[in-house]
């Protein structure tokens, strides 16, 4: 059971959060600028590394904040995240 630090609430047990998968590119302003296959890639391809991954968590049992952490998928170590929480 991970211990995840919510930027507002501090370190909390994993059970307070819902995982949102790896961080993706921002949803484009105009999806029609993309070719079909590129938009499909945006929809379905996600990073799946053996090692550090930057992923989103939602603090549903707390402040409702969406934020990102960097976690190593082999050791579950949560590394200091270079990505700031969204403002």
């Amino acid at each position: 059971m991970l211990e995840i630090s919510c930027p507002f609430c501090g370190p909390r047990s994993e059970t307070e959060f819902i995982n949102g998968g790896p961080v993706r590119e921002t949803r484009a302003e105009n999806p029609h600028d993309f070719a079909d296959s590129d938009w499909v890639d945006y929809l379905i391809l996600a990073p799946n590394p053996l090692g550090p991954v930057t992923e989103e968590w939602w603090h549903i049992m707390g402040c409702s904040l969406w934020f990102a952490i960097t976690r190593d998928t082999t050791t579950h170590e949560i590394l200091p995240c270079s990505r700031k929480s969204h403002d």
């Binding site: 819902i18 949102g20 921002t26 949803r27 989103e56 939602w58 549903i60 409702s64 904040l65 969406w66 969204h86 403002d87």
Partner: peptide, 17 residues
């Protein structure tokens, strides 16, 4: 209800802050 809330919160906080 919760899935919709999640969908909207994610859109507002992450995609269109």
């Amino acid at each position: 209800a919760q899935a919709v809330y999640r969908h909207i919160q994610h859109f507002l906080q992450v995609e269109r802050p």
